[in-house]
Design a protein around this nucleic acid. Structure first.
Lengths: 158, 158
DNA sequence: CACGCTTTGTATCAATTGCAACAAAGTGGC
DNA sequence: GCCACTTTGTTGCAATTGATACAAAGCGTG
């Protein structure tokens, strides 16, 4: 909530938490992620990683797990577990790769495709609600800035 | 990395992961948080929650744990454990509240204040590096938009 | 083809997280 | 003043997470 009036200032350092970008970013992201995660979990029994897999496969049709890792930056362990969960529910299928016995090709089943088409409008509605009141140009700028931050973080540490 | 060229599109739904704001927000935030977390952990042995407590106490001088929860939105368990860790290292002190025997007042020790003044420049340097190349007006807008998103998420979900 | 090296995915483990239950203290109606 | 209700902070527990180690398969040089 961050309600309280903030009287005394001691810092000579010029660091104020409420103005510190990484903090703001984290708080905003946690709020949004929490909201979305609860929605998917409650209504469809999907975790965020599972939902991401479904989205990626809906876009790219078929990928190996390594391909999903490259595409999303998720951890390979996370992808592996998400894939196992989706497999159990038969939302994705898993064919052996012809040329590479280690690798498998993941793709949405019909059921998975159906679920995706069912959830996508909800996801878009959430996004729309979040950005309600913002000008399209502001949203575009926001996305550009987020990419920039992500790139800078990666360059600095990754 | 998100390197690959993205040829085939199957979605009739208009949902593209790379363009989906909650996803972008989460990826950017994780990248930035990870960077910062590693820096604090490696160089000072502080977790992010601990660092937040230090910042809040540097700004507000003295607060109960409940006050910190109200101020930051952190979970009370997280605050409790962060406080325990800082207490063990004598970076904060803990006086009994006069009127309320359940509550304690946390404040930075001299050592804690010193550590804060040591870390703050590093924190600011990271922020500066992240937003290098952005116009101040863009940064200001970014912060406003993040607040907006956070508020919207809270309003939608509780 | 044999040997080392890389790559793909899984399993194991330790740390972090947040919810729920709890003890201790405070508040208020009667 | 007593009894129910709230508030503050801690503890226990179960789930999630990611780093590490690993098995299985491919690659490549001789």
């Amino acid at each position: 909530m961050t309600i309280t009036s903030r009287p005394p200032e001691t810092t000579t350092t010029g660091l104020k938490l409420d103005d510190y970008l990484p903090y703001r970013l984290s708080v905003a992201s946690n709020g949004v992620s929490g909201l979305i995660a609860r929605a998917y979990e409650d209504r469809f029994g999907l975790t965020i990683p599972q939902w991401r897999l479904i989205c990626v496969l809906a876009e790219d049709l078929a990928l190996s797990q390594g391909g999903i890792v490259a595409r999303t930056g998720m951890d390979k362990v996370t992808v592996s577990r998400a894939a196992q969960g989706l497999l159990k529910r038969r939302l994705i299928s898993r064919r052996d790769h012809q040329r590479d016995g280690r690798s498998h090709i993941l793709a949405l089943t019909q059921e998975g495709t159906h679920l995706h088409s069912e959830i996508a409008p909800l996801a878009l509605a959430y996004e729309a609600a979040l950005i309600a009141g913002l000008a399209p140009s502001e949203v575009a700028l926001l996305k550009r800035l987020l990419s920039r931050l992500q790139g800078a973080a990666q360059a600095l540490g990754g």
